[in-house]
Simulated assay, not measured.
Amino acid sequence: MGYQLAPAPQPIAIFAPFIARQTETLVLREKVMSLSGDSFEIKLQNGQPILRVQGSVMSLSGRKSVYDMNGTHLFDIVKELFHLIHTTYVVEDPRKKKLLEVKSSFALFGSKATATFTNANGAAETLTMKGNWFDSAADIVDEKTGNTVARIDRKLLSGRDLLFGQQTYALTVAPNVDMALMVALCICMDEKNNETKSY
């Protein structure tokens, strides 16, 4: 399962411990019967768990908290409620400092969103997510190089991965790219998709 993606020429990362050393395919699977809202398990293709996402039912902003496998709180994903035209999600560290902003925009066909953040080395970064999200496929592209740094795809998964109406995505991440950062972008796109389907 998965694609081979070219390495990013420079690291694209906020969370350096999660930089992929080779092309990695992660599986994001929503937990069945989660009582706390959308909760995800994130595992490498070989089954090794790397991250845990816990949703909050009582939060208007749909807050999702992301932890490593040692239980360390890495960041939260939150919808900013005061944006009327463009749906906007932010990724905050545990002290509520904004690390990343994801804004959706209109696309004639499919979905589009732009993520802006400051890289671990201090450089400003812009990533664009484009794709047919209703068909559950999108590419995450580095605006500087035009390279695809990650690909989100449900078509790679077998029928047993789609049981019980679970949201399940394969996320392929290029070498030299932060897997935790790409997980955050995938969850933002999933949230936007779920919001659109609810109208």
Score class of each variant (00 low, 15 high):
A150H: 05
P94Y: 09
I152Q: 05
A170E: 02
T172Q: 08
V141L: 04
L60M: 11
M58V: 13
V91Q: 02
K144I: 00
G159A: 14
N46L: 09
C186A: 15
A6E: 15
V173E: 05
G146R: 04
K96D: 11
F109Y: 09
A20W: 02
K96V: 09
N46E: 03
D190S: 12
D161P: 09
L181H: 03
G165K: 10
E191C: 12
D153S: 15
Q10F: 10
I152D: 02
D161V: 07
L35R: 10
T196I: 15
A8D: 03
V149S: 01
K43V: 14
Y169I: 06
N70E: 13
M129D: 02
F18Q: 06
E80H: 04
D142R: 07
Q166K: 14
E195Y: 14
H86P: 00
M189I: 11
T196R: 14
D161R: 04
P175A: 04
H73A: 09
N194A: 11
A174V: 06
I12R: 02
A174E: 07
F164M: 11
K64D: 02
D68L: 05
A150I: 07
L127Q: 02
K43M: 12
K112A: 07
S65E: 15
D135Y: 09
K79G: 00
E101H: 04
G110Q: 07
V53M: 07
L28E: 02
V177I: 11
S59F: 06
L81Q: 11
I14T: 06
G146L: 03
D38H: 10
P11I: 00
L60Y: 05
A107K: 15
I152K: 09
T172M: 06
T196M: 13
D139E: 15
A20R: 06
V173P: 03
L185V: 07
S34E: 08
D76H: 15
G122K: 00
N194Y: 08
F40K: 03
M33R: 13
E24P: 10
G55W: 00
H73F: 13
S136E: 14
L51Y: 00
M129N: 05
N193D: 14
S39R: 04
K43Y: 06
K144F: 04
S59V: 08
V91K: 09
V173N: 03
F82Q: 05
A180H: 01
V173S: 00
K31V: 12
K103H: 08
T196G: 02
N119Y: 06
G47I: 05
Q45M: 12
V91S: 08
E143V: 11
S105R: 13
F18G: 01
D161N: 14
L156H: 09
N193L: 15
Q45F: 12
P11Y: 12
P49I: 01
E191N: 11
K103F: 00
K103R: 12
D178E: 10
D178V: 07
A137E: 15
E30Y: 08
E80L: 14
G131H: 10
N147Q: 15
S198I: 10
N46I: 04
L51N: 00
Q45S: 11
T72V: 13
L28R: 03
E101A: 07
T118V: 14
D142W: 03
K98V: 14
S59A: 13
F164K: 11
N119T: 01
S198L: 09
P7K: 13
A113G: 05
V173Q: 05
E92D: 01
P49Y: 04
